[in-house]
Simulated scan of single mutants.
Amino acid sequence: MKTVISIQSHVAYGYVGNRAAVFPLQRLGYDAVAVNTVQFSNHTGYGAWTGQVFTPEHIADVLDGIDARGVLPSCVAVLSGYMGDAALGQVVVGAAARVKSASPQAVYCCDPVMGDVGRGFFVRPGIPEFMKAHAVPAADIVTPNQFELEYLTDRTIASMADALDAAAALRATGPKLVLVTSLIRADAPADRIEMLVDTAEGTWVVSTPRLPLDPPPNGAGDAVAALFLAHWLKTADAAQALAQAASAIYAVFQETRRLGTRELALIPAQDELVRPSEVFAAERVR
């Protein structure tokens, strides 16, 4: 069994962080080991929640216990998301290096969770700077949304050319692959939303319809990062992984809209995670 260690937030109710990432990884055949950086009653988008952020010492202790079980040599990837604070980020980056030392073929996939268009930053002070200076350069794969890509590269993205330049600039800081999980640009149809993947071998984009979801469900980026990572680990084909991840999350959005819920409908749409009914092709743009 191939193992992915996922270090992210956890909610008791709803689907964000590890609750949005672990199940897709499992449905796609990976033994997902969840290390939770926080435990909240629900995601913070509701405006009220209970629970606590775990200390860096707590997370390091959990990782030590996992290591003691002999798990690290079987790991094919570490996936990280919401980190809680910068000190915890240091533990996460250290854990990725530790896994790669025990399992040289393993990759570190960093979802640099910091904020979003319209909301701005929603993480604690110090995390954006840590992401830019330490986490992203240490990663093999990064999965920012458009807001996060703009911050990480000190650029404004309004066109495909802007997106291509920003992705290449971010890749130049260390990662081998950049997945932009949401792209809205002036030179594209207003009723579409895109994802873009950039590698040294080429760049591909996939476009899907924009569904009227109000409020939009939280956790989509967490799910997309897990879906893309799982497919990329299977195929080493960035374009194919992009198409599969985009098609799967679109199907989840459709089911979420049908049910009229603000939580991702991952369980009702679980078969779509493996075999999407409608596959949107990835188009090469560079």
Score class of each variant (00 low, 15 high):
residue 258 R to Y: 08
residue 176 K to V: 07
residue 170 L to A: 00
residue 229 L to E: 05
residue 257 R to H: 09
residue 250 Y to H: 11
residue 238 A to T: 04
residue 229 L to N: 03
residue 209 P to S: 05
residue 189 P to L: 12
residue 211 L to T: 12
residue 249 I to M: 11
residue 250 Y to N: 08
residue 248 A to L: 06
residue 179 L to I: 05
residue 234 K to S: 10
residue 198 D to E: 06
residue 240 Q to R: 13
residue 182 S to K: 01
residue 195 M to V: 00
residue 231 H to F: 15
residue 230 A to S: 04
residue 217 P to D: 07
residue 174 G to S: 01
residue 214 D to E: 13
residue 229 L to M: 07
residue 243 A to L: 13
residue 182 S to N: 01
residue 190 A to M: 15
residue 250 Y to K: 11
residue 185 R to L: 09
residue 174 G to E: 01
residue 252 V to R: 08
residue 245 A to M: 09
residue 193 I to C: 04
residue 182 S to C: 02
residue 230 A to W: 08
residue 206 V to T: 12
residue 246 A to H: 03
residue 246 A to F: 03
residue 253 F to C: 09
residue 251 A to S: 05
residue 207 S to Q: 15
residue 173 T to E: 04
residue 200 A to Y: 10
residue 200 A to W: 10
residue 225 A to S: 14
residue 197 V to G: 01
residue 175 P to C: 12
residue 222 D to G: 01
residue 220 A to Q: 04
residue 162 D to P: 04
residue 182 S to D: 01
residue 227 L to W: 08
residue 243 A to R: 14
residue 234 K to Y: 08
residue 201 E to F: 13
residue 186 A to Y: 05
residue 236 A to E: 15
residue 170 L to N: 00
residue 238 A to Y: 09
residue 165 D to L: 03
residue 256 T to E: 03
residue 165 D to Y: 01
residue 247 S to C: 10
residue 225 A to D: 13
residue 187 D to Q: 04
residue 200 A to S: 13
residue 173 T to A: 04
residue 172 A to H: 07
residue 218 N to V: 12
residue 240 Q to W: 14
residue 221 G to R: 04
residue 246 A to C: 06
residue 177 L to S: 10
residue 196 L to M: 04
residue 217 P to E: 05
residue 242 L to G: 11
residue 169 A to E: 02
residue 206 V to Q: 14
residue 174 G to N: 01
residue 196 L to V: 00
residue 179 L to M: 12
residue 195 M to K: 03
residue 210 R to Q: 15
residue 228 F to S: 06
residue 162 D to K: 01
residue 243 A to S: 14
residue 214 D to A: 12
residue 236 A to V: 15
residue 219 G to R: 02
residue 239 A to I: 11
residue 179 L to T: 05
residue 223 A to C: 13
residue 174 G to P: 02
residue 177 L to T: 12
residue 171 R to D: 00
residue 199 T to H: 05
residue 200 A to M: 13
residue 187 D to V: 01
residue 252 V to M: 11
residue 164 L to P: 02
residue 258 R to D: 05
residue 180 V to A: 00
residue 253 F to R: 09
residue 160 M to S: 00
residue 228 F to A: 07
residue 169 A to R: 02
residue 199 T to Y: 03
residue 232 W to Q: 11
residue 259 L to E: 14
residue 254 Q to L: 13
residue 251 A to F: 07
residue 246 A to S: 11
residue 167 A to K: 02
residue 186 A to D: 12
residue 239 A to R: 10
residue 228 F to P: 07
residue 227 L to G: 09
residue 258 R to A: 06
residue 183 L to R: 00
residue 188 A to F: 05
